[in-house]
Design a binder for these strands. Structure first.
Lengths: 175, 175
DNA sequence: ACATGTCAGTTCGGTGACCGAACCGACCCT
DNA sequence: AGGGTCGGTTCGGTCACCGAACTGACATGT
């Protein structure tokens, strides 16, 4: 994890988790992967992250089994990074964190997440209160909220304005 | 947040949250606060964190309204840091993160969390399946699991072996 | 009176993670 | 041949974090 070493003295699952996803940018990369971002350049544009840091994070997340590197064309060779089950399992954490940030800092809805089957807003543990179950991530519908810039500069942000289910690859229209 | 600046280009509640609690050690300090740790020295001993970093984090968390500094004796003047509602609201995030770490890395239960009223293990939505409700943090009973060292070196870890409710101040026995 | 100990920090020198910008190689198109 | 894209790597500078030492206010023991 970030800086120096690990949380050596800790005997704690939270500390163990933070050793893997606690570094700067890491959770945002996973978030984007859940949103359907898959390509190096799309992560780069959407996150505004230094190139070297992105390369390091993608490699580390791949080694940890959170992303999977997959060749999608041969010439020129191009790989995409697809989120695995282990990465998908981080959704409740990201959802809880997002709700906390919205509640205590944003004060407005930037994105809303609904159960695709019934339209109910997803709760802090990724559950649908109406159906009383944890909604599978692929059944979560992401919609832009009123607080979101309706005309962002970069094409990935623009592609993420369309309502879409999580995990569905994002389609970036070429200019 | 960690390093340099913020996540400037992001319009996202998750990024906003990480600007506040995304730095190294920060979430572990909040975790300890929820466990009932309140004093500088207890945080220091339990976390094994550099003193300067702890001082910075406590000040920042206080400014952000996640902890509250409170004088508990006058001579010598001593303050304790008590978690506020805003900090308590991070419990679902920490719970989700801990479950992920346990599931994917630890493979054993280090601490278990039960509904104090009925002894049922808290579910993945923070709910008590027996009572059918989301358990308020003060009604969560924390118990040591089989994976936890039964005789830790430092007195704070030892005090946290006793079953106790979250938020209840931890009692460290002097030697 | 004086030494010793505790608590809550601050100070300091060294290391290394992160930053932005430039560069690189493989491939494509014209 | 020239220019553009994609997915990186390299590089110098800055800043966060690291551990250890120091400080000051107070309490305790003799």
């Amino acid at each position: 994890m970030a800086l120096g070493k690990d949380y050596a003295t800790q005997e704690c699952s939270i500390a163990r988790a933070l050793e893997v996803v606690g570094e700067r940018w890491t959770l945002l990369v996973v978030r984007d992967a859940l949103y359907g971002v898959r390509r190096y350049n799309d992560f780069l544009v959407h996150l505004g992250i230094p190139r070297a840091v992105l390369a390091t994070r993608l490699q580390m997340l791949t080694e940890e089994g959170i992303l999977e590197k997959r060749r999608y064309q041969e010439s020129p060779p191009r790989d995409e990074y697809v989120v695995t089950d282990r990465g998908i399992a981080l959704w409740p954490t990201l959802r809880a964190l997002g709700l906390w940030g919205r509640e205590h800092y944003d004060g407005t809805v930037l994105r809303s997440f609904q159960h695709a089957d019934c339209g109910t807003e997803i709760g802090p543990y990724g559950e649908c209160s109406a159906c009383g179950l944890v909604v599978p991530v692929e059944d979560v519908l992401m919609l832009p909220g009123p607080g979101l810039d309706p005309d962002p500069a970069n094409p990935v942000s623009r592609a993420l304005l369309k309502p879409k289910r999580l995990l569905q690859p994002v389609v970036v229209d070429q200019v």
